[in-house]
Design a protein around this nucleic acid. Structure first.
Lengths: 387, 387
DNA sequence: AACAACCATGATATCGCTAACATGCGCGAC
DNA sequence: GTCGCGCATGTTAGCGATATCATGGTTGTT
């Protein structure tokens, strides 16, 4: 009673026949706003049904399974929808159908170009299948994930994308309870929670070490940022160097996460005494991020250190700056777009293909074979002038 | 009937008394997963109510207005919630209460550090008031906004943040119909849709021009990226130069949006013939983004052009690279964090303060006076070595 | 001592939409 | 001609929570 009287915004519509106005609205398709306001609330499916002279269920079909509605009815209902400016209420629809048509994506940061790329491709594919992506930024703190996941599960996403493969027991329990498809990206682990699309970060470090060794370097340094996967890359590098019995410089204090140019500069400055003395051997530096690498190169040149003559540098991420700064520097590239795409395809396959409204066959067969639940995407070292 | 038999995932629970199992669950708080699975579906509020021996409404109160529940009941219900691993269904709650506890934020890109900053602060404040932020990436295409807004309105956000102040009529109609608070950020316009927190981009350009003129420059160049607000900044700069009757070089073909380092390099390379000939006058360059500025500086130095001796450069955005590259370059800074914060406070004020669950007084009086609906945040030119 | 005011809790009726089943109609097959 | 099948549409009954009003017990007040 009172409920219906006051609109959402708290405004009260002056007295007047609702039904009469709605009847009018159907004949005046040019004034959606007027129609909207007249009702004192928002337009709902029954209003459209009434205007089009059909049952609400038919309107629902027009929106969700238009091919099961006759052409004439379809047109009539669509006209009514346009005339009234009807915007479906997915909250109600979701409650009824038990599908939210929403996929949540948890990433540590959006500032990282590679994550931005991944998300873009992931969203595009899901949107084409009629899912909306809800993006959640978790940061790099370890304990922040579970509350975030709990809060998003509250909205009953149909599927979940998580960054990283190691989760707190609390998080795992939540995911288990939710019973929805989950894809972990950007990392692989021996014990995936559900599906995975990523790569082994330690392998990246090892590959960079091998790459440097093949060029005859005898002295190595690793600068990893403070997050878990950056440390894994650094550790893979250091382990390979140690295994080969070569010299590994001890890095300065731990760097922040996410990485910054400034951190790279400061770390390199701290290392200068061991890099720039007369007769120092060439050193091969691996940075866990291109931002660190750019900072290190900047500082090295300011200090008069030859790059790559005295210090060779390889970054990670293939950010634009690695290509576009002078000189361009070597880095490791991972196809972030592919990760986003593969993750989306993996989820869509589990969700039962694309939506009927846009259906062009199942999402599988797109040229990608999701053999198992675990997909490793390749990475490559790009040789530029700094190695 | 059939509905209740099969769970969400399509699995069927083997025969067995549900009620008996649930009774057990209440006595075995250590096994939430078992409890969850036993029901054949997800745990709902009635399950918790039964386990705690109260009415569903009381459980709802525990979750939403805990101060209206007696201490003893509170504890009992909370135990039951933990024991069953209950995750509230906000889809159902939202339908009933007509509040989604969700605020949608539409931004053109998340790659831009300033947007990332804004969003972070915006989200933090809203989350503290028990709202979730749904982030939507619109890109820089003009027509993409309306469909995006329509699709998000489908989820009935309680409020909306939009980037920019100029929207297509279709978008405005949608917003009007939604009847929710809207804050436009990152720009101000003479005719705000609802609330605004931003600054005048043309003023930025004009200020940079004045700054250069004060240093005696006679020759100017503007490199704006292809998006609307970047062009406004460029236009403000050019207009000021023209108004002063000074020389304004014609820039090369339009740059892309969002801006890149590479675009800055290429644009500067294209301009070299008019900048680097013998006896050329000093030129003052304003770039609509720090990425363009970095590219331009990089290319200028490669071409042997003295910076700032022959080419002075000022960027926009105060990205890390403007501070951390060598040399650091001049730029315009806007407090993105403040925009995010002010936008959040403006919305919260309209939404009626923070949620009761976390309530610590209204959001107003946080030290910021939202006088009118339109807040202009200041910008500053940061002088570094390149001007 | 009687009554109002208040507090904690419960019962009931939706919120707007869709799954599942029901209906009626047209059309081809035998 | 009649049966049966399939299509377009309608009817009914929730989805899981909360707004609102109702209830019974407790406290404070004159």
């Amino acid at each position: 009673m009172k409920k219906r009287g006051g609109g959402q915004g708290g405004t009260t519509a002056p007295g007047g026949g609702q039904d009469a106005r709605r009847g009018n609205a159907a004949k005046m398709p040019a004034r959606p706003c007027a129609a909207r306001r007249a009702g004192g609330g928002t337009v709902k499916i029954t209003d459209v049904a009434e205007a089009a002279g059909v049952a609400p269920m038919t309107v629902s079909r027009v929106l969700n399974t238009p091919d099961r509605v006759s052409t004439a009815t379809l047109a009539r209902v669509r006209d009514a929808i346009a005339a009234l400016g009807y915007v479906p209420n997915l909250i109600a629809g979701g409650l009824s159908s038990r599908r939210s048509r929403m996929v949540a994506a948890v990433v540590p940061t959006i500032a990282h170009p590679m994550f931005a790329d991944m998300i873009r491709h992931f969203s595009t594919l899901l949107r084409a299948a009629n899912y909306q992506v809800m993006l959640l930024i978790s940061g790099y703190e370890e304990g922040a994930e579970a509350p975030l996941v709990q809060s998003v599960l509250t909205r009953r996403p149909d599927a979940l994308l998580m960054t990283g493969a190691d989760h707190a027991p609390a998080t795992r329990a939540l995911l288990q309870g939710a019973g929805i498809p989950v894809v972990e990206i950007w990392d692989v682990s021996p014990r995936p929670f559900d599906m995975q699309v990523g790569f082994d970060h330690a392998e990246v470090g090892a590959a960079v070490a091998a790459y440097f060794r093949a060029q005859g370097f005898q002295r190595f340094l690793s600068l990893p940022a403070g997050d878990r996967r950056a440390r894994q890359r650094g550790e893979g590098f250091s382990a390979a160097v140690r295994a080969a019995g070569l010299e590994l410089l001890e890095p300065p204090a731990e760097l922040p996460a996410p990485s910054t140019i400034t951190a790279g500069r400061e770390a390199l400055r701290a290392m200068l005494p061991r890099l720039a003395f007369p007769g120092a051997a060439r050193t091969a530096l691996f940075c866990s991020s291109d931002l660190l690498a750019f900072g290190a190169i900047t500082e090295a040149r300011l200090a008069g250190l030859g790059v790559p003559a005295q210090l060779a540098v390889c970054g990670f991420g293939d950010f634009e700056i690695s290509r576009a700064s002078a000189p361009p520097f070597s880095t490791v590239t991972v196809d972030g777009a592919a990760i986003g795409r593969l993750a989306a395809e993996a989820l869509l396959a589990r969700l039962g293909g694309t939506d009927a409204a846009e259906g062009q066959g199942p999402a599988i067969g797109q040229g990608v074979a999701m053999g198992g639940p675990r997909v490793k995407v390749p990475f490559h070292i790009i040789h530029r002038g700094t190695t």
